[in-house]
């Protein structure tokens, strides 16, 4: 017990908490676009993480092979994922809008294999590292904080803010909220549903690209990297209440703290186990998500 309290008040625990907070920024950024698409088009893009993976590859090749500055490469990565988002909708989801939700989910699961396979064919299975590091912020002798993660945190918070204002203030934002409630009557409001879905998918894709740029700074890219953060991204969206941006944002921090705290007391894997178990448990208590408004 003494050992436990010692651990709890140790400086490293504080560092763990802060790192959890910063990991939360990464996760929040990851789940943002998925959540938007989820909330609006009411379709789970199981292949969302694979779109991010292709964004990471774009950035990697443009920067490492073509020598393009990282910032511009990141911009191109975002462009690529935006187009991918459009394609996912136009080529697959478009034909399944009236199908059972589970069929939509499975079709994007097919895309997951397709994108993984394509990446493997085109890029092989090596792990590739961008080799760019933003360094760390040295807070004290014992506490180092990665600049990349701080940037992630800021960008995630910023994107949530921008998205929130966009959704609550603009005509398009109102239409995006409305279409998720009643698709059929949207033409009566003068809304072209097809265009609105495409727009949403494009924004979802662009947010995937933003996440890709920040992940590329922290992790090696390989064709199967999506499997390591895809599932957790879905769970964050569900826990926050599908389509609820702010809820998803908060859920990301719950997950990240659970993972890092679990990792602090045992292995990182136990951190994940803890987070997933808590997720399952919250689903039982609040199936509409932790932050859903009571209807």
């Amino acid at each position: 017990m003494a050992e436990f309290t010692d651990a709890l008040f140790s400086i490293f625990f504080v560092e763990t908490l802060i790192n959890g907070l910063l990991l939360g920024g990464v996760l929040a950024l990851l789940s943002l676009g998925l959540n938007l698409v989820f909330g609006v088009v009411d379709v789970v893009w199981i292949c969302y993480a694979e779109i991010i993976m292709l964004g990471m590859y774009t950035i990697y090749f443009l920067h490492v092979d073509a020598g393009i500055p990282v910032i511009i490469a990141a911009g191109c990565g975002i462009a690529v994922t935006t187009i991918l988002g459009l394609l996912v909708h136009r080529i697959v989801i478009h034909y399944l809008l009236d199908a059972a939700p589970i069929n939509q989910l499975l079709a994007t699961g097919g895309l997951l294999f397709f994108l993984q396979g394509s990446a493997m064919v085109a890029f092989g299975i090596e792990f590739r590292n961008l080799g760019v590091s933003l360094g760390s912020l040295i807070v004290s002798e014992d506490i180092y904080l990665s600049w990349t993660r701080i940037l992630c945190f800021v960008l995630a918070a910023g994107s949530v803010g921008v998205l929130y204002v966009f959704l609550s203030r603009s005509y398009l934002g109102a239409a995006i909220r409305a279409i998720s409630q009643d698709r059929e009557i949207m033409p009566l409001m003068g809304v072209d549903t097809k265009k609105l879905y495409l727009l949403t998918s494009a924004i979802g894709g662009a947010l995937a690209g933003l996440a890709a740029a920040l992940l590329a700074l922290q992790y090696d890219v390989h064709p199967f990297i999506g499997l390591s953060f895809g599932p957790i991204t879905f769970m964050i969206c569900v826990m926050g209440g599908l389509g609820n941006m702010v809820g998803g944002f908060l859920a990301a921090f719950i997950f990240s703290e659970l993972i890092t705290i679990g990792g602090y007391f045992a292995d990182l894997e136990w951190g994940y186990v803890l987070a997933f178990v808590v997720f399952i448990a919250t689903m039982f208590v609040r199936p509409e998500g932790l932050f859903a408004r009571k209807s």
């Binding site: 097919g110 895309l111 997951l112 294999f113 397709f114 994108l115 993984q116 396979g117 394509s118 990446a119 493997m120 064919v121 085109a122 064709p223």
Partner: peptide, 8 residues
């Protein structure tokens, strides 16, 4: 990667 691709 081809089988995975075709499978998808």
């Amino acid at each position: 990667g081809v089988p995975l691709l075709i499978y998808g």
